[in-house]
Design a protein around this nucleic acid. Structure first.
Length: 335
DNA sequence: AATGGCGGCAACCGCCTAAAC
DNA sequence: CGTTTAGGCGGTTGCCGCCAT
């Protein structure tokens, strides 16, 4: 005998969540706290699987989530961490407070992969084929699907990152959600929802930097934790110190010379842990990641440094493409 | 104005590991 | 200690809106 089943699969609703469902879920978690997802569908009457409830809460409803408009700094972080950790989105999310792993994954798949592809294809006339291949492997880990990905489109490169990013917090999202729902649901008692809304706003304001206990890695970041792969218990792992991590992220200095004035417009709450003096900041990577890192070091003679790539990527989001291509080709000739 | 193609993203699926029994 | 499930995670799908024709 093991645990009882999480939920019977019969009669489970799928598809997009409605505002009504969101409010039910939010109300329940506000009262009972996140966790024990198994009991959520039963206790709330939601016709959703417990997994679906957890996902909805973790990725969209929990406090402190920023959505959309990735800043150049966040882009750079993602690129670096993806190169270091591979497609460990939860781990990457732990270094990007207020971003969820799903959001980062989507952003990588829809934006950054295409940018990198464009970068590599632009380098093709310059780089030898084997270099191109190895670089692609290096930069993308196992996620090397450029050859099969859909054709790049100019629209994919229209990233409006120059605007100051006033991200809607989930507090605001839920407030809007509640407002929209109250307008569209005449049957409901507005007073109750106003109370709920105010209650949530207050609660979220208090908890914005101190999540009430989601189990996701992204939430761990809000609690000042960072990703520690399970392999750390198995020995043979490499510890990356705070200083080393800082050095990994040293592209900031390069970027400062390019278009880094955007940084000043970023939401200050999006500062990564390493900027907030978190003494607990360290990464332990498993053997595969160590190997990747070592290979990267070995390839340094042949490949442009990652900061160059990011410089190019960040340039691209703020300047004309033709100019960038010329610049890139010029820079590439260095290598 | 109609429509077909494409991109973005929310959500589902399936696998893995830890935990409960 | 074996069995079973919850929770976590990454990969993938499918819907929806935008844009070009």
């Amino acid at each position: 005998m093991g645990r009882p089943p999480c939920c019977d699969k019969v009669g489970i609703k799928k598809g997009p969540w409605t505002p009504e469902e969101d409010i039910i879920l939010v109300s329940y978690i506000q009262e009972h706290g996140p966790g024990n997802w198994r009991s959520v569908p039963t206790n709330t009457g939601l016709l959703r699987c417990s997994k679906s409830c957890r996902l909805r809460w973790t990725n969209y409803l929990r406090p402190g989530i920023k959505r959309g408009n990735f800043t150049p700094h966040e882009e750079g972080m993602i690129i670096h961490l993806q190169a270091l950790l591979g497609n460990k989105w939860a781990a990457i999310a732990s270094y990007l407070p207020q971003r969820t792993d799903n959001d980062i994954k989507n952003y990588w798949n829809t934006h950054l992969k295409k940018k990198l592809k464009k970068f590599h294809s632009a380098l093709d006339p310059i780089m030898a084929p084997q270099d191109h291949h190895s670089k692609t492997q290096q930069l993308n880990g196992k996620d090397n699907h450029f050859a099969s990905s859909s054709s790049s489109s100019t629209t994919s490169l229209r990233l409006n990152q120059t605007s100051s990013s006033l991200y809607a917090s989930s507090t605001e999202n839920i407030s809007r959600l509640l407002e929209g729902w109250m307008r569209s649901s005449p049957k409901t008692n507005p007073t109750d929802h106003q109370i709920l809304k105010e209650k949530w706003s207050h609660e979220f304001d208090n908890n914005n930097n101190d999540s009430i206990g989601s189990t996701s890695a992204a939430t761990n970041s809000l609690q000042g934790k960072v990703y520690r792969p399970k392999a750390e218990h198995e020995g043979g792992n490499e510890l990356i110190s705070h200083e080393e991590f800082e050095s990994i992220l040293s592209f900031d200095q390069n970027v400062n010379n390019v278009a880094w004035e955007h940084k000043s417009t970023c939401d200050s709450t999006s500062k990564p842990d390493h900027d907030s003096g978190n003494e607990d900041l360290d990464i332990k990577v498993n053997n595969n990641n160590v190997e990747r890192k070592q290979n990267k070091n070995n390839d340094n003679n042949n490949n442009p440094p990652l900061s160059f790539l990011e410089k190019w990527l960040l340039d691209e989001s703020s300047a004309g493409q033709v100019e960038e291509m010329n610049q890139m080709l010029e820079l590439s000739s260095i290598f």
